[in-house]
Design a protein around this nucleic acid. Structure first.
Lengths: 223, 223
DNA sequence: AAAATTATTTAGGTTTGACTAAATTACATT
DNA sequence: AATGTAATTTAGTCAAACCTAAATAATTTT
């Protein structure tokens, strides 16, 4: 029988998925940092996941891990839960986009498939969460997302904000204040080669804004 | 520092509270049965809860347990979560009253105080859950409930259904079908001393209904 | 290529909350 | 009062998922 996918395992799989997205395989250390767990503990868990009845990851010593098909499905399930929950909390209980992350992180492991389906229905089957992240479909496919970091734009380029990839509530509140939220239209007024700062104009906002790369690397746009 | 109140502990406290309600102290065996845990395991946990920094229960060998003030507060917190969640699931996601129990049992341990407050607000601070059970107030007081078992009524008595104390989905669906739900007005048409059956008329329903004591002991009414 | 640094793994240990089997206590009956 | 039964507790295990410290492997620097 397939072994139980515990809450911890769900967390591992979710983070492995995200690390796999940008680049190749997830390293023990990266995972440990993200999960706030000692590297040694991660090694132990990865060995377990690799030896599970339907293997959830492919793991070779010192070379990091990648998800198997089974592992990816399980990861997408958790991510779908998380993103639907964030959307639900904002739409139904008046949360703001900077407040939803922690709550969704706990609920994602606990809700039933029925709950998931009812949320999706009630929300009209949304395709993006409040941060603009794509929501995996009910059959566990991750929608394509062709956005690129705002940091990669140059003077005079115009784009639409797609998503903000950061959970820091303070940053999210700040971005909301200056109007940098999904679907906002922006134009790059200036690029500074020295510090990577971008000066942008957000459609509908009065003044220009200067953003450092710490921010522009976490805001994704589509030209 | 006060010790962490884990999910298991929350479950113990909740069930001790419920066993304390009808009568005195909860026995090891009753608890074991309710929690689906071996009696020996319950003994171990009770010793732990009794020795916790702020003791959560008062426990004497072979004499069952009762909650301390701290334990009761913790129990009411969980019960408030549970009942608000049931109400929320019915009102917001279209669950029926027979479908909410399992989901609420998982969510109750996981939601934040913020989530609790937002639910209460969104629902207009309800005082009873979909089964008619009173919802502990935000300051953790259990509202008085003077209802008595339907089984205690006799011929010609009239009453209003207050609550149904049973989680069996099949029974709940049946009761809903015959109109025995909170606030329904009923009249006892006949009482059979032999089997304890009650024949009742539900206001607004066509025909009389005969209910055995397995049911009438779980339906509470107010005269 | 050797040495130094960093990343990863091994080994052994802890905590939580369950379990079973055996022992004990309490209760009920004769 | 003695015995049998039921309830409870003790004692010893187990699994999951974490930890620290020490060992090893990989990578980078000199």
């Amino acid at each position: 029988m397939p072994e139980a996918i515990t809450q911890s395992i769900q967390d591992y799989l979710k983070h492995i998925y995200e690390l796999n997205e940008n680049g190749g395989s997830a390293s023990t250390n990266d995972l440990a940092a993200r999960l706030n767990i000692a590297p040694a503990s991660v090694t132990g868990m990865l060995q377990k996941l690799a030896n599970a009845k339907p293997a959830l990851v492919i793991y070779k010593k010192h070379q990091g891990v990648k998800l198997t098909k089974s592992g990816e499905k399980a990861a997408l399930e958790v991510i779908r839960h998380h993103r639907l929950l964030e959307t639900f909390l904002v739409n139904t209980l008046g949360y703001t986009w900077d407040e939803v992350h922690c709550e969704a992180d706990k609920l994602e492991h606990v809700i039933s498939e029925d709950f998931e389906a009812r949320m999706a229905e009630a929300l009209g089957h949304p395709t993006r969460d409040p941060h603009g992240e794509p929501i995996p479909t009910a059959d566990l496919t991750m929608p394509a997302d062709s956005s690129c970091p705002l940091a990669s734009l140059r003077t005079d380029e115009t784009a639409t904000v797609r998503k903000v990839v950061d959970d820091d509530p303070a940053l999210l509140r700040h971005l909301r204040e200056i109007g940098v939220i999904p679907d906002a239209k922006i134009t790059v007024k200036n690029y500074s080669a020295f510090d990577g700062n971008l000066t942008i104009k957000v459609e509908g906002q009065r003044s220009n804004i200067v953003l450092g790369s710490a921010i522009t690397n976490h805001v994704y746009v589509e030209k």
